[in-house]
Computed example of a mutant assay.
Amino acid sequence: MNTPKSEWPSSLDDRELEELDTYLRAHGSDGDLMLDGVHGLLSAVAIGPLEVKPEEWLHEVLHDAFENENEGNRVLELLAKLNDSISAELDVDAYEPILGEIDTEEGPLLSAAGWCEGFSRGIDMRAQLWETRLAEDPTLMQLLGPIMALAVDEGVLQADAEFEKLTDDEYDECLGQLPEVLNAVGDYWRESPPTEAELQALTRPRVEGEDGPPRQRSGHWVH
């Protein structure tokens, strides 16, 4: 796709990505999202059924007070730029997921585990809408297929039935489908936005004891 340079999204360059990655690693602990996870979370937020404001998703990303105002402004600037770049990149077919790296006997290997974990947490930001629609409309589940396959393969999502590990080619194929999947899911929610009943359910007070077991989807997003 030939996109004029003036319309090309302003994404983080390698230096900015490394700067943000360094900050997240220095201030993160077990279970906190690193750069790949933040990218997954913001990707889910970008294509989701209802706006998630920065003051909501920032709680999933930042856990320590900033050392000073300059550090705070810089980190928030980088996160805002990362967030804004996702929709822009999807619009011009320039989206690429940020992947983590794991050490194997054969050497370093790229992994979608962190991205999938972040994506699951992005879904959880509007869990009730996603869960209701996934239960009622198999189309949405089908669209999410490649992401779910990666998430199950990486142990982020638990499958109800026995699941055979993806081959390297299948794994790469699912990764290659992510931009298409995100655009398709984004289109789905634009064309079939939350109904009035679904939105009203968001504000309905929960009955005591109603929470029950952890929320589940057709597979179970596990953290």
Rank of each mutant, 00 (worst) to 15 (best):
P4N: 06
P4Q: 09
P4D: 08
S11I: 15
D14A: 15
R15A: 15
R15K: 13
E18N: 13
G31R: 02
L35D: 03
D36M: 02
G40W: 00
G40R: 01
L42H: 08
V45K: 03
V45A: 04
L50W: 09
L50A: 13
E51V: 15
V52R: 09
V52I: 15
V52P: 09
P54A: 12
L58D: 11
V61D: 06
H63A: 07
F66L: 07
F66T: 07
E67Q: 14
N68Q: 04
E69F: 07
L76R: 13
L79H: 10
D84S: 13
S85C: 06
S87C: 10
S87N: 08
E89L: 06
E89C: 12
E89S: 12
Y95N: 01
Y95C: 02
P97T: 00
E101P: 00
A112C: 06
G114S: 15
E117S: 11
G118Y: 06
F119R: 02
R121P: 07
I123C: 10
D124S: 10
M125P: 04
R126Y: 01
A127I: 04
W130Y: 12
W130E: 02
W130Q: 02
A135C: 02
A135Q: 08
P138E: 12
T139M: 06
L144Y: 08
I147P: 01
A149W: 10
V152H: 10
D160V: 01
F163Q: 15
F163C: 12
E170D: 13
E170P: 05
L175H: 10
P179I: 00
E180W: 00
V181G: 01
N183C: 08
A184H: 00
A184N: 01
A184L: 00
G186S: 10
W189I: 05
E196S: 11
L202P: 02
R204M: 14
P205C: 03
E208R: 15
G209D: 03
G212K: 00
R215G: 02
R215Q: 05
R217G: 11
S218R: 13
S218K: 12
H220E: 09
V222Q: 12
